[in-house]
């Protein structure tokens, strides 16, 4: 369980703004901090990890105070017991995959490392150096390294942002699976709506340093009032031109649907756009996964 209330002055691309955040989470919850880049998300994550110091406030995890400006408590990162996955993985180039994963373990346990590698289907890579791995493989090593030390809190900083979509989709499921298996409370920072939709138990939507909405993905990301009639709202994830028409992948609720659209309509749309699918349209809808 996390209780957090912090303030910190930040300097963004649009000038100075105040990061001013307060929230609580429940046991083993997967929380996605969702918002555009430059909104202070990553800073928030770094503050929780102890890599940066807020101006004031407190952070309490499992009843233990990590930071309290009034009581002058500020635990260093080493004492906070987090597993942090960096955006660019930050694997140690001088160690192989096995050594990277074992590095942060509180109790050295060879079998545990092997088991983790097996779960991620990476046993064969255990002696490889990070610079010989693909992006997706590095990402998994970074995740395993963070999980291997059985942290109180798993912190993920845009872990999928620099990967191909296919790999990202695959790894997203893997992250979810690991999180469920080990029941680790997780905070993930992302500006990608797929992350928010597929992973989050709860979403905190941040803009300019403030929480503007929080709740379940459905509550936060989609309109609360059910619309009359046959109108579905979704977010366009991808469009593929197929010669005469477009195949659109659209996120609706927690599902992703693919529908076709005419060339004229398809051309006006960009991924990330909100789209409405009205009942008047004839649409072939099939399940994505």
């Amino acid at each position: 369980m996390i209780r957090l209330k912090i303030k910190k002055r930040l300097f963004g691309p649009q000038g100075e703004f105040l990061l001013d955040v307060e929230f609580e989470t429940k046991q083993a919850e997967f929380l996605v901090i969702f918002g555009p880049s430059g909104s202070g998300k990553t800073t928030l994550l770094r503050i929780i990890a102890g890599l940066e110091k807020p101006d004031e406030g407190f952070i309490e995890v499992d009843g233990k105070i990590w930071y309290d400006s009034k009581k002058k408590i500020n635990l260093p990162p080493q004492k906070r017991d987090v597993g942090f996955v960096f955006q660019d993985y930050a694997l140690f180039p001088n160690m192989n995959v096995f050594e990277n994963i074992a590095y942060g373990m509180k109790k050295k346990d060879k079998h545990k490392v092997i088991e983790l590698l097996r779960l991620a289907k990476m046993e064969a890579l255990k002696d490889r150096r990070p610079d010989t791995l693909s992006g997706g493989q590095k990402q998994r090593v970074a995740l395993l390294r963070a999980i291997a030390r059985e942290p109180k809190l798993l912190l993920l900083d845009e872990p999928l942002s620099s990967l191909d979509r296919d790999i990202a989709t695959f790894l997203r499921e893997e992250i979810k699976a690991f999180q469920r298996r080990y029941q680790i409370p997780t905070l993930m920072v992302s500006h990608n709506i797929e992350d928010a939709i597929r992973l989050a138990d709860k979403i905190l939507k941040i803009e300019n340093g403030k929480i503007i909405a929080s709740g379940s993905p459905r509550e936060v990301l989609f309109s609360k009032n059910p619309s009359s009639g046959f109108i579905l709202k979704g977010i366009l994830l991808e469009k593929v031109f197929r010669g005469t028409d477009y195949l659109l992948s659209i996120a609706i609720g927690t599902d992703i649907v693919e529908i076709t659209a005419s060339k004229e309509v398809g051309e006006t749309l960009n991924s990330g756009d909100w789209v409405q699918i009205s009942g008047k349209f004839f649409a072939t809808v099939r399940e994505f996964r």
Binding site: G50, Q78, G83, P93, G104
Partner: peptide, 15 residues
């Protein structure tokens, strides 16, 4: 040496 390697080591509990 990239700063995040050092931070990674700190978050992994190393002095």
């Amino acid at each position: 040496v990239p700063k995040n390697l050092i931070e990674a080591s700190f978050t992994l509990g190393k002095s």
